[in-house]
Design a protein around this nucleic acid. Structure first.
Lengths: 192, 192
DNA sequence: CATCTAATATGATGATCGTCATTTCATTGC
DNA sequence: GCAATGAAATGACGATCATCATATTAGATG
């Protein structure tokens, strides 16, 4: 091999990370292969020696960004009270709302992913279930086990939905209230 | 005037309704002007005598589809108990999950709308607030007025998020549990 | 230092994108 | 039935899309 071993691997990683950001920012259909490669400091030509298709890159990017989201949420929770309210406060923060490119992949891409290849959705599903578990672990142990799981799903759905609405709305004050409403709701859903 | 009066208006309406469906099905970037016009039984050429741009059509389509969603939810609620649980059951039904093209525009387009023109987001915002009011009117009057509004936002966010996740996931059983979790959560959030 | 080859760049493919100028056609008023 | 006119069709614009064949170049190996 002529290039240092691991060179191609690290280049691939750079492409995935660039894609991971841009897909969240502009949507999977909102950015082309050429722009993605340029963001990684390359030209578009070499793309297909790294990935079979744009869809394959999306799959890798979903895996990367969902893992990032998982790590970030874990970090956030640990930093503050390590309960659902802490998670909600971190998730529904202005900074998260204003920076989708480094934020939750589910919030940025969920409706689009529903229209993508089964492989891509499968990757998403696995990571999403890890997110559910993250919340579930912070629900009161008094809740029946069967309910804990469904409750964690609903809490995440509420957080994700609130973030999306806060981003879509054209009214700063309303956006703020949506975030607050989401935090309160998550707290309520984490009780009883 | 050479064509029957109202002819152009009804054609425009046909285009909006075709767009209203296709945008929800394939996303705003997932379908082109030519396909939209074809769906309305026309060719692409005449498009710009009806709309200034594709964005203008999106704005009209968002207004149309959000209004449809509002009407449908009102109808659904009235049909069954006329409470939040009835709304949730209707919203998180399999039929809704499996037919985004005739379903909630917010669930189909929210993340994408965040990236669109202020005018488009303003139209969305107005209709979204009507959706909030629809839920708010079905919350127990014992709740403090200030909380009612935020609560209604969170309930809708939870419904919308649950629907999106149920659509994105590649696991039928999980999809089902997400829908159930959303219904239960909405019911809990409508109490106390 | 020269050679070899993997990694990237160049450049082109046909398709589709949004947009628009121009032409054709349908319908109504005379 | 003819002329006037508004609506829709034709066809093209340059840009960008995903994809790929070919050329170049970087850098470790001998």
């Amino acid at each position: 091999m002529r290039y240092a071993k691991g060179h191609k691997e690290s280049t691939r990683e750079r492409i995935v990370q660039a894609a991971s950001r841009r897909f969240r920012q502009d949507g999977a259909e909102g950015v082309g292969v050429a722009a993605l490669m340029a963001e990684a400091g390359l030209t578009h030509g070499g793309f297909y020696s790294h990935f079979d298709s744009k869809e394959a890159l999306l799959r890798a990017a979903v895996e990367d960004s969902m893992t990032q989201t998982l790590d970030e949420l874990t970090r956030l929770a640990k930093r503050y009270g390590d309960d659902v309210t802490a998670l909600a406060r971190g998730y529904l923060h202005h900074q998260h709302r204003d920076h989708p490119e480094s934020g939750c992949a589910a919030a940025a891409l969920a409706p689009e992913l529903a229209r993508h290849a089964p492989d891509t959705r499968a990757v998403f599903t696995v990571r999403l279930q890890a997110l559910f578990k993250l919340i579930e672990a912070r629900l009161p142990p008094t809740l029946p086990a069967a309910q804990r799981r469904e409750r964690s799903m609903a809490i995440f759905a509420a957080l994700m939905g609130s973030l999306q609405l806060a981003r879509a709305v054209d009214d700063a004050a309303l956006s703020e209230r949506i975030l607050q409403g989401g935090i309160h709701a998550a707290t309520i859903l984490a009780l009883k």
